[in-house]
């Protein structure tokens, strides 16, 4: 059983079980209230599922890509929850949750703000039911996706406004079950910190 958290779009928290499936899922679609809602979402998901913290085997978390500030709230929460519970963190690429269960070739596109989008392409699902990522995740202006995404025309495009923590958790359960590698433990920012190095002090007179 896993607690799953994703804040790469809105904020979504679920409790999932490999056999019983989704036991609870709570989602806040607002993309600017992650810090406010995260605690309550976790508490509600645990309460509704009736699962005790000690019964969890880990905490799945969406590592993005996603807008930094919100994305970090979920990762910080997942790491801290796992630390408190003494359980491992299972990092998952957030787009995998959108592609979960889709057998046809799929291009997942999510909002990256500042007139850019995050994208990942999937060629379908493997025999275990896990999405097969063909390329990505990447960052691009929407108008250049066609050039950036290899074999762009072969994919059905889905623009996802939400990423389901339940789907993310189920992906993590399958990764666990089939001993597949998890995503890297690094947040998928795909952008450098927003800084411009100044050339030196400006004249004032």
């Amino acid at each position: 059983m896993l607690l799953a958290i994703d804040t790469s779009a809105g904020a979504s928290v679920a409790v999932v079980d490999r056999d019983a499936g989704v036991l609870a899922e709570f989602t806040e679609p607002d993309t600017r209230r992650h810090a406010e809602v995260i605690g309550t979402l976790i508490q509600d998901a645990l309460r509704e599922s009736g699962v005790a913290v000690t019964d969890l085997s880990g905490v799945a978390v969406g590592m993005g890509p996603g807008p930094f500030t919100g994305l970090r709230v979920g990762i910080a929460a997942a790491r801290a929850f796992a630390f408190g519970a003494g359980k491992p963190v299972v990092p998952v690429v957030s787009h995998d949750a959108v592609a979960f269960g889709v057998a046809e070739p799929l291009l997942v596109v999510t909002d990256a703000r500042r007139r850019e989008v995050y994208w990942s392409s999937y060629s379908g699902t493997d025999p275990e039911g896990l999405p097969i990522r063909a390329s990505g995740p990447g960052l691009a202006p929407p108008q250049s996706l066609e050039e950036v995404v290899p074999d762009f025309r072969t994919f059905r495009r889905v623009d996802a406004a939400e990423v389901s923590a339940a789907s993310l958790g189920l992906v993590a359960e399958l990764l666990y079950l089939h001993h597949r590698p998890f995503a890297s433990g690094e947040a998928l920012y795909l952008r450098s910190p927003d800084v411009t190095l100044s050339a030196g002090p400006k004249r004032v007179s």
């Binding site: 992650h34 605690g39 976790i42 910080a76 801290a80």
Partner: peptide, 23 residues
């Protein structure tokens, strides 16, 4: 700094819930 504060707030809430302790 709001983005910096949110890291601590998110972590503290999750830690408190996982431990069942007041925040």
């Amino acid at each position: 700094l709001s983005g910096a504060l949110m890291v601590g707030v998110g972590a503290a809430k999750a830690l408190a819930v996982s431990l069942g302790k007041p925040l």
